[in-house]
Design a protein around this nucleic acid. Structure first.
Length: 506
RNA sequence: GCUCCCUUCGUCUAGUGGUUAGGACGUCGGCCUCUCACGCCGGUAACAGGGGUUCGAAUCCCCUAGGGAGCGCCA
C-alpha cells in the first residue's frame, strides 16, 4: 500500500519507507481495497523475452484482468554484471507486441537499493539476521564434507552467535527458523510442505553491500502489494525461504502459483538450439501476436474443447488454478495452424497492415502500384501459415518473378500449350480495362478452353505458370485480376518465348 | 548425493470412482477442384510400470522407473 506521499509502505508493524521507486496514480490503496488482485511479471534483463517468460507474463496479466486487478512490471536487475539496457528494451518490446499492457512500472530494483538496505538493517537490529565472515575456504570445505556425507550442502550457522565488526568485510545472512515446517499453499500444485531443517541461513546482503534475489523479491512483492505471485516452477524451492523472510518482516505472504516450464519440441529444456525462442523473432517470422498468445495460453491451460480464444475470452475464462502441473513441449505445427487460422479469419485490413512490413522486406512497396494489399490478403490468406509466407507467395502481384518453378514450367509450358496461351493472349488483349475483373476473366478462360476443346486445367495451368511462375495461386480469374492486364500480357509473351526457346533446344 | 515437483494418443489437452477414455494439431485415406491451399468426411494413435483400497479405478494410497528443478556473495 502507499501512503499519502505516494511511497511504498509495509502493512506490518515496522514502517519501512521509500526505496526510490514510487507508487503510480491509481494504486492508492486503503484497508478496504487491500484484497485487490495485484500480479507482477519480474524478468531479469539478461536477454530477450522468451516464450516461457511470455507465457508467465500472460498468465499474470490474465489473472489480474480477470479479477479487476493490476498487473505490474518489475525489472530484476540486481545482477549488475549481466543486466543490460538492451535487454530491458527487448523485454518491453516483446510485451508491447503481444499487447500485454502493464498498469504500473517498470520498476527497477537497482533504484531501490536504499530500501533493501533499510530492510536488512532492520532485520539485523531485530536479531533476525546476522553478519557472517566465514572465508570461502571454510565454506568450500563444509560443502565438500557434506557432499561426501551424502547430505544436502547447507550453511551450518557458524556465525549465528558471533559478534562481527560491521566495518570488516562480511555478508549478512537471514536467520532461518531451525525447526518446524513451511507450507507453500500453491494455487496450482496444492500444499507443498518443506521442513525448515532443509533450509539454511541464506545470504541476503553480499560483501559489497548489494542485496540478493531472495531478499529483493520479497521486499518488492510486499512493498508493491502483490497478492498473487505467478512464476516459473523453478522458484518453487525458493518459496519457503521467501515465506520465512516475509514472516520475519511481518508480512502476510502472497498466494503463489508455480507454472510448469515450456520444453522444446524434443521435450528437452528450451534453449537457443531449438531456434526461435525469442518472442520478437516470432513477430519477425510472420506470426500474429494473437496467434502466439492463443498458442501460449493453451500450453498448460484449457477450457473444455475450445482451441481458439480471443484475448477477451481468455480474460473471461482464465483461472490460474486450472493450469496444469506438468511441463509441456512447444509444438510449432500447432502454432502454425493457429497462425494460419488468424490470418484466414482475421479482419483483412488488419492482416494487410501486419503484412505490409513483410512485403517491404522483399523490396515491395504495396502502396506504389499493383493491387490493394487487402485484396491480396483476401485472395491468399488461406494459403499461408505465416505473414512471411503470405508475402512470398504474393510477390508476383507486384513484380515479375525471377525464374519459373522448374517442375511447373516443365509440365505446363510445353509446345502443346502454345495454342491455349496464344488464344488467351488474343482474347485478353481485347478486354477493356473495366472488364478486367474475375467474372469476365473467368469467362474468357472458359471460352478459350471450349474453342480448343480442352479441359479447364489444360488452359488455366499453363496460364497460371506463365503469370505466376509457379503452379499454385488463387483461382485463375482472381490471379489475373491481381496481376493486372499489362503484366499478364507481358508474362504470356515471356512464356511463349520460353516455349519457343525450349522447342529450339529440343 | 539430498529436498521438492512432474508422468493420458507423436504433440497440446478433456477427464476429478462407473465414458466404446473425448477434442485439437500432426499424420494417413477420401470428397471438393483450373493449381495450391481452404473446407468437409473418415481412419490411426494414449492412461509409464507394479502393488494396494474398492463391487468398480486414468481418477485415491504406496513403491519403482523415467524426466525436471533447487541446494550460489545468479535471478
Amino acid at each position: 500500500m502507499c501512503d499519502a506521499q505516494g511511497r511504498f509502505v509495509t502493512s506490518g508493524a515496522a514502517v519501512l519507507g521509500d526505496g526510490g521507486a514510487s507508487c503510480l496514480a491509481g494504486s492508492n490503496r486503503t484497508e478496504s481495497s487491500k484484497m485487490t488482485v495485484r500480479t507482477r511479471f519480474a524478468p531479469s534483463p539478461t536477454g530477450y523475452l522468451h516464450v516461457g517468460g511470455a507465457r508467465t507474463a500472460l498468465f499474470s496479466y490474465l489473472f489480474a484482468r480477470r479479477h479487476g486487478g493490476q498487473f505490474v512490471l518489475r525489472i530484476e536487475d540486481t545482477d549488475l554484471e549481466r543486466s543490460t539496457a538492451e535487454s530491458v528494451n527487448a523485454i518491453m518490446e516483446g510485451l508491447t507486441w503481444l499487447g500485454l499492457d502493464y498498469d504500473e512500472g517498470p520498476f527497477f530494483q537497482t533504484e531501490r537499493f536504499e530500501r533493501y538496505q533499510q530492510v536488512v538493517d532492520d532485520l539485523l537490529e531485530r536479531g533476525l539476521a546476522y553478519r557472517c565472515d566465514c572465508p570461502k575456504e571454510r565454506l568450500d570445505r563444509l560443502r565438500d564434507t557434506q557432499m561426501a556425507a551424502k547430505v544436502k550442502p547447507r550453511y551450518d550457522g557458524h556465525c549465528r552467535g558471533r559478534e562481527i565488526d560491521p566495518e570488516q568485510p562480511h555478508v549478512v545472512r537471514f536467520k532461518n527458523p531451525v525447526d518446524g515446517a513451511v507450507i507453500v499453499d500453491d494455487l496450482i500444485r496444492g500444499r507443498v510442505p518443506f521442513a525448515n531443517t532443509e533450509l539454511d541461513d541464506l545470504i541476503i546482503r553480499r560483501s559489497d553491500g548489494s542485496p540478493t534475489y531472495n531478499l529483493t523479491v520479497v521486499v518488492d512483492d510486499a512493498d508493491m502489494a502483490i497478492t498473487h505471485v505467478i512464476r516459473g516452477d523453478d522458484h518453487l524451492n525458493n518459496t519457503p525461504r521467501q515465506i520465512n523472510i516475509l514472516k520475519a518482516l511481518g508480512h502476510e505472504p502472497p498466494r503463489y502459483a508455480h507454472v510448469p516450464m515450456i520444453l522444446g519440441p524434443d521435450g528437452k529444456r528450451l534453449s537457443k538450439r531449438h531456434g526461435a525462442v525469442s518472442v520478437v523473432s516470432y513477430r519477425d517470422n510472420g506470426y500474429l501476436p494473437e496467434a502466439l498468445l492463443n498458442y501460449l495460453v493453451r500450453l498448460g491451460w484449457s477450457h473444455g474443447d475450445q482451441e481458439v480464444f480471443s484475448l477477451d475470452e481468455m480474460i473471461a475464462l482464465f483461472d490460474i488454478s486450472d493450469v496444469n502441473t506438468a511441463a509441456s513441449a512447444f509444438n510449432v505445427e500447432k502454432l502454425d495452424w493457429l497462425n494460419q487460422h488468424y490470418i484466414q479469419h482475421g479482419e483483412p485490413k488488419h492482416i494487410a497492415r501486419l503484412l505490409s512490413p513483410h512485403m517491404g522486406e522483399l523490396g515491395i512497396d504495396p502502396a506504389e502500384d499493383g493491387p490493394e494489399l487487402v485484396d491480396v490478403v483476401m485472395a491468399q490468406a488461406a494459403r499461408a501459415k505465416t505473414l512471411k509466407e503470405l508475402a512470398a507467395i504474393s510477390a508476383f502481384c507486384y513484380r515479375d518473378f525471377e525464374d519459373y518453378d522448374e517442375a511447373a514450367a516443365k509440365k505446363h509450358l510445353r509446345p502443346v500449350a502454345r495454342p491455349a496461351l496464344e488464344g488467351l493472349r488474343a482474347e485478353l488483349e481485347m478486354l477493356a480495362l473495366e472488364d478486367w475483373e474475375p467474372e469476365t476473366l473467368h469467362r474468357v478462360v472458359e471460352r478459350v478452353a471450349e474453342e480448343l476443346e480442352l479441359n479447364m486445367g489444360k488452359v488455366a495451368q499453363p496460364l497460371r505458370v506463365a503469370v505466376v511462375g509457379r503452379a499454385a495461386s488463387p483461382g485463375i480469374d482472381v490471379t489475373l485480376q491481381l496481376v493486372g492486364k499489362d503484366a499478364t500480357l507481358r508474362r504470356i509473351d515471356r512464356a511463349l518465348a520460353f516455349i519457343d526457346a525450349r522447342a529450339a533446344n529440343a
